[in-house]
Design a protein around this nucleic acid. Sequence first.
DNA 1: CTGTTAGCGCCTTCAG
DNA 2: CTGAAGGCGCTAACAG
Lengths: 341, 341
Amino acid sequence: MANIRDVAALARVSPITVSRVFNNPERVSPPTRARVEAAVEELGYIPNQIARSLRSNRTNTLALVLTDITNPFWTSIARSVEDAASGQGFNVILCNTDENEAKQEEYLSVLLRKRVDGFLLVPARSEASAVESILRQNVPVVVLDRRVPGAEVDVVRSDSEAGAYGLTRHLICLGHRQIAMLCGPLGVSTAQERVDGYRRALTEAGIPVDEHWIREGEYTVESGYAVASELLAERVLPSALLGANNFVAMGAIRAIREAGLRLPEDISVACIDDIPDWLVGEPFLTVAAQSPYDMGLRATELLLRQIREPGVHPTQEILLPTELVLRRSTAAVNVNHREKT
Amino acid sequence: MANIRDVAALARVSPITVSRVFNNPERVSPPTRARVEAAVEELGYIPNQIARSLRSNRTNTLALVLTDITNPFWTSIARSVEDAASGQGFNVILCNTDENEAKQEEYLSVLLRKRVDGFLLVPARSEASAVESILRQNVPVVVLDRRVPGAEVDVVRSDSEAGAYGLTRHLICLGHRQIAMLCGPLGVSTAQERVDGYRRALTEAGIPVDEHWIREGEYTVESGYAVASELLAERVLPSALLGANNFVAMGAIRAIREAGLRLPEDISVACIDDIPDWLVGEPFLTVAAQSPYDMGLRATELLLRQIREPGVHPTQEILLPTELVLRRSTAAVNVNHREKT
DNA sequence: CTGTTAGCGCCTTCAG
DNA sequence: CTGAAGGCGCTAACAG
């Protein structure tokens, strides 16, 4: 592969002149420039960005570390991040942690070695350690979706508490009293907040919170299925399920079908996170919808600003609202089906 | 940010010894190693992969250039590519071309400068030029999903022709004769092959191919919606629609609903590409399902082999089968609804 | 407008 | 087991 000196030799100029043809073409006389361009063409020369990065300390690359690109919520975020980044001349390295801290640590370590210009991080757990390993190196970070108590970072997230509150309230209005909360891993702030919202709605309505109805799991279809199956095998059935996210709810729905129960006649289901309607034809899930595309966009903008204008920025938190979308998966409680026969 | 010389100075060794502690720790005596490790810890030293890449000509980074991560088909591929790559110590840069050749060219140019170790490319158009710009630089490439006539590359793709053939045959068996084909951009091999399969099934059944029923569009929801709307506004309605992919079909379904037609009573719909069932609860679309996860995996394996074992490899093409999945979006033709009243 | 010098951080080669 | 020299490809800074 030809390098800058090969081109320089062929064009009978110095390497720096070739460099200038690429970076400041106006500072090279047209005839010289033409000679250089001809040589570039002839040799198929492509400037080596690695060498340039070594000098400039800039890679024009961002890291997007999320849990699982397969969930449409993260897919939208990935799309918006890549849109915003490529529009500003940055590429995006994609990493799936599956909420696994060991995987996350490994990724961060590799990415720090690669000297990415910044991180968009969905922390596997809401602890400061991961974020701090980045901040310690003075590398810009923006945290997505989750709070990280104790760390001084920019965060862009949705109002999970309000989302869960709204859904629970909606279920209460439909007459439900025995509402099971299939919550996510409590080490993650969103899981915690969703339980908080659930509790607040019940308490406000004067319904005692029964810990029996709160079940911790993962943010996955498998976990939602497993936890719901367990719940449905018990003597007293809930009349409604609140899924911590779309995956959990879809798993729960499968369990409900397999148990021979009807949705929503026998049991209602709602969750946080929508599924794009062009994927499902007739959307039927009642949800508190987030705005993932917007979230990725805002976060990328914050990150690029940090990169462009180094120095101390006051850390900021952007809180995006959720939107309650009522559909066919929730209905008024059916008193006949409260308990098993 | 500390560099290797800072560490060396603090540990009172030469830089090369520090390097060895990271790359060949067994060749450094334990006491020296301990001193170096202490210095590394104290300074928070992280080896600079850029400098290493400059020497080694290896970035441990792959480029995944696809059309739109938002389509679950590509999402699965992205997931499998990232899984396979990270398992072998490679990171993945994600790029969305939206089937736009200019965008694709821009990405390829930047990625070649970055000296990625290899490309997984879904070419925006089935022409050799993009692939050849990579091959010319002796950079490994594997083409995903599409054929590129005239280029000597490894390709991993599905049997689109057979998929479209199977779906068309299924519709014919249900009594449909006026089957509209909403095909993708004909510059893309898959679009072409899907039309071929459609034609073959009709011809074999002795049904004359009416070019009126073949409509070219993009592989997007919007395009599917637009083309189907147009079709449904005409005097003679088709009794079935064959969507070139899942997006097109979902757009068509929206158009059908808006036209006040019932699915599948008034009109049947089928398409190539499934939508993961955990996204839809009750899958209802009749499809020729591909295996995107597998496709990404196989392609990444091929690519990593090219990278690991440089030199001439016989180019190979891996053709994955599609699977016909019959669901509720297709039904026997309804003679009463063939023509508008 | 063009060129020379030097160095970004690391590691291969060769010596001790 | 440890180190010195040199260079990967590029571009600031400083001549001319």
